[in-house]
Design a protein around this nucleic acid. Structure first.
Lengths: 200, 200
DNA sequence: GCTATTAAGGAACACTTGTTACAGATGTAA
DNA sequence: TTACATCTGTAACAAGTGTTCCTTAATAGC
């Protein structure tokens, strides 16, 4: 009565991961509103009904695409968090960001900025999701800085919340800079200048 | 044969400036794609035909709205350029930006970021316009820094292009920070920290 | 008065939007 | 083979998209 996957009936005939990857890439490039279901069917190579059966509606698919993006692509911050010292962390944060933004075969922006900044009321859930992710990233950054403060690496005179927002501001700015068309070399130099002004 | 305005026939019965102002505000909030003609007719209080007769199609109207935005709202950079010294200029640039982003009665973002970052191929002209404006702003900033370099205010060791991109990065980052929902106080402190790290 | 010219209001346009219904295909389990 | 369950492909859906057409209204000059 049940197959190996615990399901009976006709099995799926396409690679779900590959399809979601394709969806992620157009959403990344065109944002939630700029991507139509027609675009998605073409890029994923699937019929609407297959998409709906496998992933749900457009909002649900977008959420899954963003989740995939965060887990597989936007690891530049997570990787940096693994660094042992504060200095190594901050250096890695900036360098990873530049490397990420200039990786070929995907848009030169953070998906959370291309996804939906200004949008219709209909797309508000998508925008809220983007904002929330940006805030979560900021929380993770803050916790790393708090740890550095406790270890004495970050001077007590520095306000952790301010420092968090400041670093976050520069990282976001780099993403815009990349979206404007800055080259890898330019981004690197910008990041280096930021590091120098931070004292690193 | 001709009226005072050089036109015969029935005169326009609405305030063109007020209508364009209304259009600008929704475009600002929802971006090009997120704003429908139905939204525009409602916000502007006009019929489609009146909009088309007075401003052209949606793309043309968006261009006019952006032009108005640049000329009347986004003057924070232009005003700063009038400052006499480099230090005064940079301080004004940051302070004006924060003041602008936290002005009530309009969205807490730069219109060029909300307008269209990720978008459909159909909206590409709008996105290109946004990118071009951001680049133009950067050119104006660069020229001010070049002047400071010549006057000796900006040390020759500092690469003007790099410094331009660096300042531009922080300004753009502040806009994202504001869009995330940062308060005026938070933005002020972030800008102050940026200034301090710049040596001001 | 009349005529010319332009704007206003609203219906209608062809097309696209996201979503679903349905018939047929394709598999598993007995 | 038969029964069952699920996926696939296509067509259709209602609602929304940007845009245009057309009738009516309002003004200017004769």
């Amino acid at each position: 009565m049940k197959t190996a996957n615990g399901k009976t009936g006709r099995p799926i005939s396409f690679d779900k991961d590959a399809a979601l990857e394709a969806a992620m890439l157009i959403f990344w490039e065109r944002g939630f509103e700029g991507t139509s279901m027609a675009d998605l069917t073409q890029a994923m190579g699937l019929n609407p009904s297959s998409i709906y059966a496998a992933f749900g509606d457009k909002h649900a698919l977008f959420q899954l695409a963003v989740k995939r993006y965060m887990g597989l692509r936007a690891q530049y911050a997570v990787k940096a968090l693994e660094e042992s010292t504060l200095e190594r962390f901050i250096r890695a944060l900036f360098n990873n960001t530049v490397a990420f933004l200039t990786t070929p075969n995907h848009p030169p922006t953070c998906m959370t900025l291309a996804g939906a900044v200004g949008c219709s009321v209909d797309a508000k859930p998508a925008r809220d999701l983007m904002t929330e992710i940006r805030k979560q990233n900021q929380v993770a950054l803050r916790e790393r800085l708090l740890k550095a403060r406790k270890s004495g690496e970050l001077p007590k005179e520095i306000n952790v919340d301010d420092y968090t927002r400041y670093l976050s501001t520069i990282i976001a700015g780099l993403s815009i800079q990349a979206a404007n068309g800055s080259t890898k070399a330019e981004l690197k130099r910008t990041a280096q200048m930021a590091l120098r002004h931070l004292g690193y």
